[in-house]
Simulated assay, not measured.
Amino acid sequence: MGLFENPLADLSLVSQLGSKEHRELARGKAVRRSLVLLKNGESADKPVLPLPKKASKILVAGSHADNLGYQCGGWTIEWQGLSGNNLTQGTTILTGIKNTVDPETKVVYKENPTAEFVKSNDFSYAIVVVGEPPYAETFAWLPGTEGQGVADVLFGDYGFHRQAFSALGLKTVDQLPMNVGDPHYDPLFPFGFGLTTTPTKAN
């Protein structure tokens, strides 16, 4: 690979990093296609997702919902990751949701809402970015800088895909490493698991 002969990166293309074209590619090819839908409502007859864009009030909760650094995770700006929105260009999941819903839909963000707060506010829907929503469970991995891609799928502009990873969810840490074909292969959700959805027209 020539790494010893040329150990430093070629900096001539640095100006293209984070360009609009690269971010659109990440949003479409990486973020939208990496979302996995594990559960969609209490029954197949009453799916929760995709969410309608027209709603009176939506709660968005979780520490990662409005934090680009947390969305990117480790091995990005620093190897363990950083918190904050001033680290790089991008769109948080919260901003993506606000950009997607109807202008009359009120979007409320609360990092750690109490049960009393949720009950007293008459929300149409609650989107929990970190944690497990009660009826629709979506796994977003680390969407990086393009949180808009998460909103694209949650609100039905694009559909969910099946997971392309060896396993999602270990039953015990003793299963590591675990890949398809291993004698001990027994994940919570095997390779190819996931509910698919089809894109919906404006709703």
Rank of each mutant, 00 (worst) to 15 (best):
Y185F: 13
G2L: 03
R32Y: 00
F123Q: 07
A61E: 15
F4Q: 07
V129L: 10
I93T: 02
D174Y: 14
T145W: 07
G169H: 03
S63I: 13
D45F: 05
D45I: 01
V128F: 07
K54E: 11
S19Y: 07
G18A: 04
V60P: 00
R23S: 02
T91G: 03
N203D: 14
D186G: 08
V108M: 07
D102N: 15
L176G: 04
D45R: 09
D10Q: 13
K57Q: 06
T138M: 11
G41L: 08
K57M: 05
M178T: 10
D186A: 14
L3A: 10
E116A: 13
Q16V: 06
D174Q: 15
K119S: 13
S56D: 12
V101P: 09
G96H: 05
W79Y: 12
K57P: 01
T88H: 13
P103Q: 09
N99K: 14
E137Q: 15
V107D: 00
T197R: 01
Y158K: 13
R162S: 07
L51I: 08
E132K: 13
L142Q: 09
V14P: 00
K29S: 05
G144E: 06
F160N: 07
L94V: 00
A9I: 08
N112E: 15
G28F: 08
G18E: 03
D186Q: 12
E111A: 03
E132F: 08
K171C: 05
D174N: 15
G81V: 00
K29N: 08
V14D: 12
S124W: 04
G96V: 01
V60W: 02
A55M: 15
S124N: 11
S124Y: 04
G41I: 07
S43P: 00
K53M: 09
E137I: 15
A140F: 13
L3Q: 07
L8D: 13
L82K: 15
T95E: 15
P187C: 04
A151M: 00
V173M: 14
S43K: 00
K53G: 07
S15T: 10
S19L: 07
A44Y: 08
N86Q: 13
Y135G: 04
G144F: 06
G96Y: 08
L195C: 04
V31P: 01
N99M: 06
K201N: 11
P143Q: 03
F191C: 10
P52N: 09
L82A: 12
E132G: 03
K39R: 14
A65N: 00
I77F: 11
A65K: 01
P113W: 04
I127L: 08
G90K: 14
L176P: 04
T197G: 05
R27D: 10
T88R: 14
P113G: 03
R23C: 00
S12A: 10
L154C: 03
G169N: 03
Y109F: 15
L68V: 08
L51H: 06
A164V: 06
F4P: 00
Y70I: 15
F155E: 01
